[in-house]
């Protein structure tokens, strides 16, 4: 079930997940480049489609963090787009979702972890940002710190566990029940892939928004 395809470039080990990720990046870059090559005020079908995607994501981000939407939009939108494609790529025969690899989901979770602090400090300043760990009471500081790590870990494990289990279940059913039996499971895979991408991106958005707006919500302004 697990692909053993790896090669090394010096100390760097290149695995299948990494190659798939590059493929996804290449597809996204090509689609992005082609779809935005000739943008018009009165859009065509392709421009309308990509504008709808970006506008929907922008609206979702604005609903949660209206004052910082434009700032965090590239990060959250990229998370959503990448995760949707990465989760769905497992449906293509011969390919595997990169998100069934703990290294990939951990990397994304760690990125979210650092992004939260980066945007929080950038928006509020270091002192104000660190101060929010002491609110509402300094006693809660250890719980805040534990929460930071556990929620990052939960992000990584949730996505990894769901995607790996989905692919594994489909593979087992295919081996046991025959050729057409995994179709419902594959449909479930599609839904689950979209839901997991949405959950990951939305949690990241909420964490970012919480970090950027916590001090502002507590302050009189």
């Amino acid at each position: 079930m697990e692909s053993d395809f790896t090669f090394t470039l010096g100390p760097v080990e290149i695995g299948l997940s990494l190659i798939t990720t590059w493929g996804i990046m290449l597809v996204l870059a090509i689609v992005a480049g082609l779809s935005t090559r000739r943008l018009e005020i009165i859009p065509g079908i392709l421009q309308t489609s990509v504008e709808s995607i970006v506008a929907t994501i922008d609206e979702a981000i604005t609903a949660v963090a209206p004052e910082h939407a434009r700032q965090i939009m590239p990060f959250i939108a990229t998370l959503w787009l990448f995760l949707i494609i990465a989760n769905l790529v497992g449906l293509v025969p011969g390919l595997h979702s990169p998100t069934r690899d703990l290294s990939v989901t951990s990397a994304l979770a760690v990125l979210v972890f650092f992004s939260v602090h980066w945007f929080g400090i950038k928006t509020l300043g270091l002192k104000s940002y660190l101060h929010h760990y002491l609110t509402p009471s300094p006693i809660l500081l250890p719980f805040h710190i534990i929460s930071e790590f556990t929620r990052t870990l939960a992000l990584a494990i949730r996505l990894f566990g769901n995607m790996m289990s989905l692919e594994m279940a489909a593979m087992l059913i295919l081996l046991v029940a025959g050729f057409l039996a995994p179709i419902p499971i594959l449909m479930l895979h599609i839904i689950e892939a979209l839901v997991q991408a949405y959950i990951f991106g939305m949690l990241a958005l909420i964490y970012l928004a919480g970090a950027m707006q916590s001090q502002q919500l507590n302050s009189p302004e």
Binding site: L18, W22, M25, V54, M73, P74, T78, A107
Partner: peptide, 25 residues
């Protein structure tokens, strides 16, 4: 857990953010 994949994925994602920000968003 593969450290190379972990690190390269972080780099890949940051590059993807840059590409999409420049070409798409």
């Amino acid at each position: 857990f593969n450290l190379s994949t972990f690190v390269l994925e972080i780099i890949n994602f940051l590059i993807l953010i840059w590409i999409l920000q420049r070409l798409f968003y």
